[in-house]
Write a protein that binds this DNA or RNA. Sequence first.
DNA 1: CCCGAATATGGGAACGATGCCATACTGACG
DNA 2: CGTCAGTATGGCATCGTTCCCATATTCGGG
Lengths: 308, 308
Amino acid sequence: MAAAVRRRLFEAADQLGYVPDASAQTLKQRTSRAIGVVVSDLSDSFYAQVVVGVEQTLRDAGYQVVLVTDNKDSAQEVTVARTFLALRTPGVIITPVGSEATTLLRLQGVTVVEVDRQLAQDGCDAVILDNEQAAIDAMSHILALGHERIALLTVGTDWTSDAGRQWGYRTALERAGLPFDDALVVKAAPHDSESLIERRIRDLLGQPGLTAIFAANNVLTVRAWRVLHRAGLRLPDDMSLVGFDDVAWMDMVTPGITVVAQPAVDLGRRAASLLLRRMESRDLPPAVERLHAGLVVRGSTGPPRKPR
Amino acid sequence: MAAAVRRRLFEAADQLGYVPDASAQTLKQRTSRAIGVVVSDLSDSFYAQVVVGVEQTLRDAGYQVVLVTDNKDSAQEVTVARTFLALRTPGVIITPVGSEATTLLRLQGVTVVEVDRQLAQDGCDAVILDNEQAAIDAMSHILALGHERIALLTVGTDWTSDAGRQWGYRTALERAGLPFDDALVVKAAPHDSESLIERRIRDLLGQPGLTAIFAANNVLTVRAWRVLHRAGLRLPDDMSLVGFDDVAWMDMVTPGITVVAQPAVDLGRRAASLLLRRMESRDLPPAVERLHAGLVVRGSTGPPRKPR
DNA sequence: CCCGAATATGGGAACGATGCCATACTGACG
DNA sequence: CGTCAGTATGGCATCGTTCCCATATTCGGG
């Protein structure tokens, strides 16, 4: 068709208000332009940032984002997976809580990319943080300051994100020749109430010799900060605090919080790019991209008050 | 069909991995189970919260959310509207930047609910904040403390949200018998850079007699706080600050920021409920729900240092 | 002026679910 | 035993697009 005719045609179609029916296209082509995106919780600015990156990238590539949040458990996740199958989404990006959903989707030929956590066993694409290194960096900073009894606040799941951070914590201690003490570890469950978590952190403060806390995500960092604040402890003199995720307020409080800064938006962008690449050439070897976090040193960390 | 047979049928379908094709259903029924959701910016925790509310409610009602962010201008919004038309979405929830998209959608029979801002003229459903009252409450608090020269940081659009807050600001001044001074108003454009906004706030501090600042959204509140912080001004002695949106850090900084707290999640929930109601009975009179914000008084506001 | 290639046009058939219709069947009751 | 309501079953058109094939039509080159 000649270019001029083509142009006039589109103009006419436009004038008539014609919009091609996506469902008819999907039906005929047996695939849609919608990508399923599942994240745990949009209230957590980390996940919100991930979605920002994902949505931008997919929109630019001409895809729609079908967003589902709050995948509490594996069963719920499978329900969501079925919805995506019904929608004939060619791809799904998920912060998984189990591996069933991913398996189900991939079995039906849906391309899946896991973000933030990597749970599927069988070579699923994933974009994750180098949690081990991130934790080691945070711990090295604290250890270099002379701390010897350092608490870890983490989430008690088998997700790679938290497991990796725990591993980094232990490894850093080991390398420094310090003992690992279970009493210094608080493992929150994903749906523990704020008050329960805060009580457990509060209890932690009773541990003799404790001079620093490493909070392994931004929610726990807030909880820790609040507990320390209420207890009237001064940072960093009474207690050092290293957080995870450089969310907006971390440099607004006094003193600023030293954190491991995750490139959250980039995590989302890369997951989306990887998905797009994978969708167009399905026989690439499975890729696991591992991004690096940077340590941002602020005022919440300093040498322990009474070095021994 | 008998209940027992029915059950066995579903079991069998399940076992075979049969999932009804949503696009075929959409095609035949001429409507889908997907709702279009458009918000300005997920990085802004206000919008993220709105989406949380919307998504929860719609998911519970068995709908999918097609999320689009970053509707910078009217033209882009119309493009998004066309996408929704192609998807045959029965409804759309939008924080609008113009009225064309809404008009186009409604003309094609799509139910639209505007959230946060109300731009469509012709009786479109909307769920918004009582911005006028919220601004008056904030100003009344400041005025009661004895402030007389109060700056306003706002967004220079014709959106109802910002216009309402500006109106409240002027009205409160008027009622207090104080003059309105244009030199005390900073109107940021939606895509001004952080540094430009901060420079303009910085310039504002030169205004003689200025003792308080009312920032009309959470982004501007951050910017104001940073400028004041860098200028070494102490809250509330050197300057009082009232913010908008009770985001997480507002009570973590020292002193805590006095804010007008928007019920963001609820705004989203209500918008979704209204949409659902409207979709099932299309001939209801147009509804505009107006939610109330509450003033949360913290340490950032106090009497001016030198009362006259 | 004619031939073959390139392009245009028109007509189906599919995609999978739905909903209607006609026909076949079941069982209860007169 | 016949009748009729109620239910089951199979067949078929439809939604709007895509894609293929069979005919038309155009155009440049011989």
